[in-house]
Design a protein around this nucleic acid. Structure first.
Ligand SMILES: [Mn+2]
Ligand SMILES: [Mn+2]
Ligand SMILES: [Mn+2]
Ligand SMILES: [Mn+2]
Lengths: 152, 152
DNA sequence: CCAAAAGTTTAGCCTTGGCTAAAAATACTA
DNA sequence: TAGTATTTTTAGCCAAGGCTAAACTTTTGG
């Protein structure tokens, strides 16, 4: 009745307008933090791989221009997620590093879950890039649990 | 490699900048279509449940104002996804109905997958609202396959 | 050591998707 | 049927996150 995998009727059949609105609001909030998290996680990756994060490399890996990166770094700086001086490379604050580690962990859990249910490696990494930002802690916990059981 | 706190190192360790950029681009494209798909799917739900879709109900269920709904409907109309006359209720074009059915199907598959790996009903519906837009056809196929096997 | 290349910053533009406030149209009800 | 309530529309505002072009700084190599 509830989760009828084979198609079925309107999503909202068993949901009040208010509850549904809260779901959409959560999705909108996820969209807001998505870009921030991707930048911070990517900066951590670059630092850990190359010892530093330069704007030009951030741009290359995100597929955006240097100007876009620059504007975003200014925002991250105001949010106290990074330290950055003009014409120098970018560093994470403690808070930024914490967010990066959390994002990275989520990212890996989502990839692992996708792999565990039969998604191929390349697709898993691609799809996880978006999905990671929409998973509640409860869902991530369920994913981790499922992957652990599967692996044993 | 560098730091291996708990779930592996940098995401990009086994990925070229170009490939990673393509993932981020796909995620940005998903963000673009997400709102469109949510509107169209919701309009289909309202029509199927109540015989018609009024702007005020769309707003209530999305958690946005009537003005926002109005502006969006104008866009959907220009995209030939809906038909709408001033002060009348909103109808789906054939193309809109097709998109709605596809979105609804994806939505149900994602919920079913979440349920299958141990996520509770309420959380599954909430998280699926965002995740549904990030899944490639390959991933959705894998989800459907996994759910089917699980069920049998 | 200096010119060219590479990287960074600034300025200004655009679309999206929210919002409020107020006007206009429609629907309800006394 | 008149007056009120609801709904829809318009107008104008805002922040986010893209872009290009051009100026500026740093790095590099001859
Ligand atoms: Mn990530
Ligand atoms: Mn991501
Ligand atoms: Mn949906
Ligand atoms: Mn959705």
């Amino acid at each position: 009745m509830s989760s009828d995998p084979k198609g079925g009727g309107a999503v909202s059949a068993h949901m009040t307008p208010d509850k549904q609105a809260s779901h959409f609001k959560r999705a909108r909030e996820a969209r807001e933090s998505e870009i921030i998290e991707d930048y911070v996680e990517l900066i951590a990756d670059l630092i850990d791989e190359h010892g530093e994060a330069r704007a030009v490399d951030i741009g290359k890996r995100l597929g955006v221009t240097g100007a876009t990166v620059n504007k975003m770094i200014a925002r991250l700086k105001m949010m106290d997620l990074v330290n950055a001086e003009p014409y120098r490379s970018i560093f994470l604050t403690d808070e930024g590093r914490k967010m990066a580690e959390a994002s990275r962990a989520r990212h890996h859990i989502v990839v692992a879950l996708l792999r565990a249910v039969g998604v191929d490696e390349a697709t898993a990494w691609a799809d996880a890039e978006g999905m990671e930002h929409c998973c509640s802690p409860e869902t991530l916990a369920a994913f981790a649990e499922f992957v652990k059981k599967q692996g044993s």
